[in-house]
Design a protein around this nucleic acid. Structure first.
Length: 236
DNA sequence: AACCAGGACGTGA
DNA sequence: TCACGTCATGGT
């Protein structure tokens, strides 16, 4: 058993399906979890079901950069309340009204710019799936945001690496502290691809794994020294 | 009351 | 390439 996959199985056994990516437009089940409040869809991998949900995921991916999801959820609800949860509506909004709506997420000047960089690209996609390179060429979309969009909005098998992922894998001695994004991503993808023979399961498992790592990290890796109290994974 | 949150960009060495 | 400062609000 490869280490990475055994981590996934332990986390899934402990926490179960996480129902990511949350959508404020979807009244999903709401398991007890740290932070967020609504929009989860536990065990249902049929998302996004339409273009509106696809866009909401992309929007959330930008808004959640270095930001707690609860704050992002407030921003999304603000936009929903002024009927501006669509690319067209956002582009037509007054600049200050848009920034006010997304203010809870922080960095509202930057993120307003990032989102308005992304929207014309999104509108030009039609039904096409963007390449990773295309996304990375947009100012405001880095590796994690690109992979989050590809995995959760476009259903592509791209593993998402974040600060939590690195903390956990460093604590378990599987990667170095200065490991690169690409290096961690490759390690996880190669390990999972060897274990998962059914290619259809790759995307759901990537989706669950990232969500599970976030959930686990919120419990044990939120404050220093990271992972010292990780009674689940450090126990083996 | 510090510390941190589901990062990315621009700059200078 | 890479370390470092900056961006901002809100929860704990």
């Amino acid at each position: 058993m490869l280490k990475i996959y055994s981590i996934y199985k332990q986390l899934y056994t402990a926490y179960g399906s996480q129902g990511w990516w949350p959508l404020v437009g979807h009244a999903g089940t709401n398991p007890t979890k740290t932070g967020a409040v609504q929009g989860y869809h536990v065990g249902d991998y049929s998302f996004p079901r339409n273009r509106a949900e696809q866009f909401e995921i992309c929007l959330g991916a930008i808004l959640t950069q270095n930001t707690a999801w609860l704050a992002v959820e407030k921003s999304l609800l603000n936009l929903k309340n002024i009927n501006a949860l669509t690319p067209e509506a956002i582009m037509q909004l007054r600049e200050d009204a848009f920034k006010t709506a997304i203010r809870p997420s922080g960095y509202h000047n930057q993120k307003a710019r990032y989102i308005k960089n992304f929207i014309p690209f999104f509108q030009g996609l039609g039904d096409r799936v963007p390449t990773r390179e295309e996304l990375l060429n947009i100012v405001g979309i880095g590796p994690e945001t690109a992979d989050s969009m590809l995995l959760y909005a476009f259903g592509q098998p791209e593993f998402v690496v974040d600060a939590y992922t690195k903390r956990i894998l460093v604590a378990l001695g599987l990667i170095a502290e200065n490991a690169t994004y690409a290096g961690v991503k490759q390690l996880c993808e190669e390990a999972l691809q060897k274990e998962i023979t059914d290619p259809k399961k790759l995307v759901p498992i990537y989706q669950e794994f990232h969500a599970l790592l976030v959930e686990h990290a919120k419990r044990y890796y939120a404050k220093k020294p990271y992972g010292q109290n990780d009674s689940l994974l450090r126990a083996g």
